[in-house]
């Protein structure tokens, strides 16, 4: 592994995480995961669990794919609900990793950052390794780190919107403020170029669901995102040139003694 990303002391070579919802079929989901080379998938439990953990058939399909599972608390609207879902997820998937979502608003699926911090603290105290889905707000990010989170997952745009980065300055500021915290862009990306952009900005990884699952060809799109993420990461490491206002000839101009300087 030449350029691993470390998430809670686990080194991973793929910087792509995939959600598992809304694929045309579990078989296409499995193909997309293989095509992307991703090593972590997220799985929701709240609604699928039903009254008696009735989601076992689907969960075992996911387990059989053989990648690391990051259970999530999608659909939870209070800290209490999210904590209970996380505890169930720990048993179902035998992992202390949890992607924490506490949704505050139905139209934008915007995180309830107050409930998020509250749940993050309770879960971190209980030994969970929390991956909080948050906004791009710096102060909330600070609070999540204070609460015990060691990874942050800011949105780029609302979940499932496919809009790409809404506020590039906010994401840059987050990156600059937390140079040593793994930052994963979680929501709102639609096209591979969006993923390449955030990776060039120095983000550590990208989590996708709708952009892949609802593409015309989810398997090909998973591969396209994997390539874009790899390209963006390499671009970041290679230190891009600084943009200039004027043309800069790539071959020296001979025979012109004076450049126009003003």
């Amino acid at each position: 592994m030449t350029d691993p990303v470390r998430l809670y002391d686990v080194a991973l070579s793929s910087r792509l995480l995939l959600g598992t919802a809304r694929y045309p079929s579990p078989a296409i989901l499995a193909e997309a995961i293989r095509a992307s080379g991703c090593e972590i998938v997220t799985v929701s439990l709240r609604r699928e669990a039903g009254g008696a953990r009735a989601g076992e058939a689907f969960w075992s399909l996911i387990r059989d794919i053989g990648v690391r599972v990051l259970p999530n608390t999608a659909g939870c609207r209070t800290a209490k609900e999210a904590i209970a879902t996380a505890q169930m997820a720990r048993e179902v998937f035998a992992t202390d990793w949890i992607k924490l979502e506490v949704i505050g608003e139905e139209d934008t699926l915007q995180p309830d950052v107050f409930g998020l911090v509250e749940a993050a603290r309770a879960l971190a105290d209980d030994g969970f390794k929390v991956f909080p889905y948050t906004t791009d707000d710096l102060v909330v990010a600070e609070r999540l780190l204070d609460a015990g989170c060691r990874v942050l997952m800011p949105w780029a745009a609302p979940i499932g919107s496919g809009r790409g980065v809404n506020d590039v300055f906010a994401l840059r500021a987050l990156r600059a403020h937390f140079p040593d915290t793994p930052l994963i862009v979680d929501a709102g990306l639609g096209a591979p170029s969006h993923a390449a952009l955030v990776m060039e900005m120095g983000y550590d990884a990208v989590l996708l669901n709708t952009a892949v699952s609802r593409a015309g060809d989810p398997v090909l799109m998973a591969r396209a995102f994997a390539l874009a993420i790899e390209a963006g990461r390499a671009g970041f490491l290679a230190e891009p040139m600084t943009p200039r206002d004027m043309a800069e000839p790539s071959t020296p101009v001979i025979g012109r003694p004076f450049d126009r300087l003003a």
Binding site: R47, E48, G50, G51, A54, E56, A57, F58
Partner: peptide, 13 residues
């Protein structure tokens, strides 16, 4: 369309 095998329970949601 829910990926679970709970046969006869209609939820409020």
């Amino acid at each position: 369309m829910i990926e679970n095998e709970e046969r006869a329970r209609v939820t409020a949601r």
